[in-house]
């Protein structure tokens, strides 16, 4: 069930250039049911910026009623968010959307987790949960450049981790798609920029693949029809899914990206 809650910030720190890790306390943590769900944050009780910011959940600590988000400081809203510190309060709506299905892989099987840039964070909780059920996980994480790389050590705790950078300043030079060609897996989970998702979907049309999409949102709960995408049904051109409430995670081929 979705809650609107005033949550207390436990900690916030910059973990890479313009990448912030924000930890908050919330009663609705118990409602989080899958990795890859997100929350909708009102960064200021003001008219400007007006709308909430959708930010994915990167890890969940149910015992302490806390969860963590990792986001990039980019526009007006995330800049305001980045200024907040421990003890301050945040108006958060969540948990929202449908996350990655962890039951699609069995113990002993291999899952490949592929993240690009700010699409990396939700894969962390996914990796934790898959590992806990005995799935072997491999991570391939792509970034622009060395200063943008984060969480390599954290992912390494759960499995092999390959890092790529576009400019070659860290890890392997190139894109995640260059690395995953050489890897074998039973199920692939991915989150990142749309061109990356498209390339992966095309490359693995015969495999079990789950994609997390990003789209500009209004309400975050399915009412405003801002974040709509077409389904792959070629017989009609009016069938749709909403990224916020039907997604953000879809099975590859379910929607047109």
């Amino acid at each position: 069930m979705i809650k609107k809650e005033i949550c207390k910030i436990i900690s916030q720190k910059e973990i890479a250039q313009d990448i912030f890790q924000l930890n908050v306390e919330a009663d609705f943590v118990n409602e989080i049911n899958a990795p890859g769900q997100f929350v909708h944050i009102r960064v200021a009780k003001a008219l400007d910026p007006l709308l909430r910011r959708p930010i994915s959940i990167s890890s969940v600590d149910k015992r302490n009623s806390q969860f963590t988000m990792i986001y990039r400081k980019e526009g007006k809203g995330t800049t305001l968010l980045a200024e907040k510190g421990p003890g301050m309060l945040l108006d958060i709506l969540g948990p929202l959307g449908n996350g990655f299905p962890v039951n699609e892989v069995k113990a002993g099987e291999t899952a490949l987790l592929v993240g690009g840039g700010i699409g990396v964070p939700p894969l962390y909780e996914l990796s934790k949960q898959l590992t806990a059920k005995g799935v072997k996980v491999i991570h391939v994480l792509g970034f622009q450049t060395e200063s943008a790389v984060f969480y390599e050590k954290e992912f390494l705790e759960y499995g092999d981790t390959y890092i790529t950078t576009v400019d070659g300043s860290y890890g392997k030079k190139g894109y995640v798609t260059d690395v995953i060609k050489e890897l074998d897996f039973d199920c692939l989970y991915t989150c990142g920029p749309t061109p990356m998702l498209k390339a992966i979907e095309k490359q693995y049309s015969h495999k079990k693949v789950f994609l997390s999409l990003e789209e500009r949102m209004g309400c975050g709960v399915g009412a405003c029809f801002a974040c709509v995408c077409k389904t792959s049904n070629e017989l009609d051109d009016v069938s749709y899914k909403k990224v916020c409430s039907d997604g953000p995670v879809f099975r590859a081929g379910e929607v047109l990206i």
Partner: peptide, 17 residues
């Protein structure tokens, strides 16, 4: 089905849809 996305953009104290 409506228009292609992006369908919304924030503005100062408002939004475009």
């Amino acid at each position: 089905f409506g228009n292609p996305t992006p369908r919304v953009a924030e503005t100062s104290s408002g939004m475009l849809n």
